[in-house]
């Protein structure tokens, strides 16, 4: 039983963390909200007064907005599809008995620990470059014309890089989920003569459902805000400008803080919609 004294002690011990996170959440958020209603141009006169909802309207009506939304969607959905599908297959493969399982696991997980600027630049220069990249070498070897991937297929390139980074994460979580699957159930189905496809579809997939949902939600939150991978590769050119990158450019490059802040508020709302679903699953788990 918790005594009154230990309750007080508990409160005091929680205070630093709660106060810090509260400040971290509220102070910048309120500032962003404030700026989003101002006509704020630090290099062209500073704060030029109240702007109402002008920034919000201008952000969504600017010609860069819809392409940025599309770019974000393509990259997020493309990466999700690839990492979840390959992640399930890879997790099933890694769950099979084999020699050197531990080493294979290490090889598969490794990309997750590579910093985003390194994976961006290594892929861009050493693989996707049209003159000396490995892909160009392969193309020349089979007699095809090398492609300038970053320019001609920016989405393919970025999705490839980001999927490579996130596939380990999806695989690892799905593998953890598969390993918690009750093997008796599978054996019973096997004895009853259920074919492999049916066993996969009716036992493994439903069991993985929750893990897949968690993978999708967590990855979506991270993928919505990928930055460095674009910063070092296309720098937002060739139509690959995502919402995050557009806001970054508005705020720091063109120094239109009001407009950028309105975009920031949109990004925060978008992230929160995804977050609500994730939190619900996490919250349920906390009860059990």
């Amino acid at each position: 039983m918790a005594t009154k004294a230990s309750r007080t002690a508990a409160r005091i011990m929680m205070a630093p963390a709660v106060i810090l996170l509260l400040g971290w959440m509220l102070v910048p958020l309120i500032m962003t909200l404030w700026f989003s209603f101002r006509n704020y141009l630090p290099l062209r006169g500073g704060d030029l007064g109240f702007a109402g909802f002008d920034n919000y309207v201008r952000f969504v009506t600017s010609s860069a907005f819809w392409p940025a939304v599309m770019a974000t969607m393509i990259i997020v959905v493309g990466t999700l599809v690839i990492t979840v599908v390959l992640g399930v297959l890879l997790a099933l493969l890694l769950d099979q008995p084999m020699w050197g399982q531990g080493i294979v696991r290490i090889l598969v997980i490794a990309p997750f620990f590579v910093m985003p600027t390194v994976s961006g630049l290594v892929w861009k220069n050493m693989f996707l470059d049209s003159v000396n990249g490995l892909f160009a070498h392969i193309a020349r070897f089979i007699g095809a014309t090398p492609v300038e991937w970053m320019i001609e297929a920016p989405f393919f390139s970025i999705i490839l890089i980001v999927s490579w980074q996130w596939l380990p994460f999806a695989t690892l979580i799905l593998l953890t989920a598969i390993q918690s699957l009750d093997s008796e159930q599978l054996e019973a189905a096997e004895i009853d003569g259920a074919p492999k496809i049916k066993r996969f579809w009716y036992i493994i997939v439903p069991h993985l459902g929750r893990a897949i949902t968690v993978v999708i939600l967590i990855q979506t939150i991270f993928l919505l805000s990928i930055f460095a991978e674009i910063y070092v590769t296309t720098a937002g050119a060739f139509g690959s400008k995502t919402l995050t990158y557009l806001i970054f450019q508005r705020v720091l490059e063109s120094q239109n803080v009001g407009l950028g802040s309105a975009g920031g508020v949109y990004a925060i709302i978008l992230a929160n919609i995804v977050a609500i679903f994730l939190m619900r699953i996490v919250g349920k788990n906390l009860d059990s």
Binding site: R7, W24, T32, S225, V251, L252, A267, L278
Partner: peptide, 27 residues
């Protein structure tokens, strides 16, 4: 020393992680 609000506090802490960095870049 869990209290009735422990779960809410944990969930709220998690929610601060969801804030997109670019949204608060200028502040």
């Amino acid at each position: 020393v869990p209290s009735r609000r422990t779960k809410d506090i944990l969930m709220w802490m998690l929610s601060t992680k969801m804030l997109p960095a670019v949204g608060v870049l200028y502040p």
